[in-house]
Amino acid sequence: MKRIYVNEEWCLGCHLCEYECAFANSGLDKMFKLKGKVGSEILPRIQVEGGENEPIHFAVNCRHCTNAVCVTGCIAGALSKTDEGMVVIDKNKCVGCFTCVLLCPFGAIMPAADGKAAQKCMLCTDNGVGTPNCVAHCPNNAIVYEER
């Protein structure tokens, strides 16, 4: 299965991916309409690790683990694996217990901004963007979408 991989050698820590992710999942037609919404109404599903003055940065989102502990631990059956291996979340089934948030070793699942359900990277399959937006807009090819 094609997955999103991050090469820390080329990650600049510019945080563009976070905003591109937020935009892709916002349903808005123009990016500037995100003004004031990121962090409050919309949370990115990818997060750059590494502080401002640190030499290494690394964007983290769902790894779509082969043995996904979030799927095993989900009490509501909201998280499952597709035949291809993608870990998907069904928001309608999610009861907001956030067991998955605690289980995920990468911190790649987080409560959605409304606090009612969890959210995670769905490789932009749920928003009609096509190529994952963080990959398409990474200025240094640090985020790639490929089969490995």
Binding site: C14, H15, Y19, F32, L34, K35, E52
Partner: peptide
């Protein structure tokens, strides 16, 4: 300022 979403990419890149 209409368009700026304060993502701070400019700040980090300068």
């Amino acid at each position: 300022s209409e368009l700026c979403i304060a993502c701070r990419v400019c700040e980090r890149q300068c």
